[in-house]
Design a protein around this nucleic acid. Structure first.
Lengths: 219, 219
DNA sequence: ATGCGATTTGAACGATCGTTCAAGGAGCCC
DNA sequence: GGGCTCCTTGAACGATCGTTCAAATCGCAT
């Protein structure tokens, strides 16, 4: 293959991913995917047995794409683990703003449109969510004692996803980022409370166990 | 019209509402709506100019249905204003459980499927959300000084919707109510914190004078 | 050059999509 | 009963849907 020429399979996947994100699964015709990717039916049906198979491919594609395309940019820009959570939310916000409050989350959209009818797709959507939340969970683990001892990091990470998806949905319906911003603000307030509680736990611990000093650990 | 015979228009609306909820908008064929409602194309196109018009009708229908079908049962069962919030979430949970973690919220589904392409539908979905959150907001207002003074009731009501929609989405993807329950548990914890803070404000107010700024009048 | 599997071409298919409309009741006022 | 309006009937339409496949072409080892 000549350099710079995208392999057929990936070209279809990328095009389909974009179109599913823009229009949804059912509203996207195979003919449109072919036109946008500049390919013929036979090429697509050589790579994917059906439109449903293509959907599965797209969801596997998204699973692979998540860390490099979504998580890594945030980690590059923001070092603080809790700061990263809100930087991630800010990144989705920026995307929505660019697109005029349209489209939202590509996985979330498919979740509500196809999860009930395509068992394999449902499973992959679930894994996309778990993958996303798992990476946020790593950040929350890294936050260490800045979060309360009894705070379930995995659960809190899923909650971040909950707030993001719910916020994006309402922002899209409103045609305005207000509902998203307000949801994130409530989440921020929740995190503030958690961090404050953890601060209390640290000074209590410092008094009885280790030497006194700054509540924060080593930089 | 004979008693007990449902008017054509309402029969179509109810059938379409159910099918849109079960299968989504694009996946539901007009022919299916006609079959399920036992009507002919001409009857439907006499009442609604197009499938898109029917979608609008369904969203107006849902707007009217919200208080009697969703809010009223909760208010009948639970008297405590904050208890009502979680009773409402419990009601959606029960629905999801009955349906084997399928379908989710009928409005939320349409929000992600059609909001971008149907401006009038987007507006009505937005009004459905605002209506729902407005009623939850009334409960939060009624909670009076059980919530902190600086707690924006309207914003918190939208946050409840955010958590519900995000939780339903993940529960559907997981095929399990776990993610919904965990999201609601985090919200419960948030409410606990807010209520505790409000308790602190109440004893502070009863004892010493509050800090600067215009003190609020009696709730 | 030749042979051969992998890939692409693009016309064509049957099914289903949303929609139309001439014809025919149903109910009601005069 | 006649006439008018409102509503229903159901066959049929053109468009578009996802998909197929025989033929052509490409990539490459021999």
């Amino acid at each position: 293959m000549a350099p710079g020429v995208e392999p057929t399979r990936e070209r279809i996947l990328r095009t389909a991913f974009e179109l599913f994100h823009e229009q949804g699964y059912h509203a996207t015709a195979v003919a449109t995917i072919l036109r946008e990717s500049g390919l013929n039916p036979g090429s697509m049906y050589h790579a994917f047995g059906s439109k449903d198979d293509l959907l599965i491919g797209v969801l596997e594609f998204a699973l692979v794409l998540c860390r490099p395309a979504v998580i890594a940019p945030v980690e590059a820009r923001e070092a603080d683990p809790i700061g990263r959570v809100f930087a991630l939310l800010g990144q989705y916000r920026a995307g929505m703003e660019l697109r005029g409050c349209r489209m939202g989350c590509p996985i979330g959209n498919l979740a509500l449109e196809v999860a009930d009818d395509h068992p394999r797709a449902r499973e992959l959507i679930h894994r996309n969510f778990e993958n996303w939340a798992g990476m946020v969970g790593e950040w929350l683990e890294a936050a260490g004692d800045r979060l309360p001892r009894d705070c379930d990091r995995v659960r809190l990470a899923r909650f971040v996803l909950t707030v993001m998806e719910g916020g994006l949905m309402q922002a899209r319906a409103a045609g305005d980022l207000g509902p998203f911003d307000e949801s994130v603000a409530e989440l921020r307030r929740y995190f503030d409370v958690l961090e404050e509680k953890a601060r209390g736990e640290r000074v209590g611990k410092a008094g009885t166990k280790t030497r006194g000093g700054a509540p924060r650990g080593p930089g």
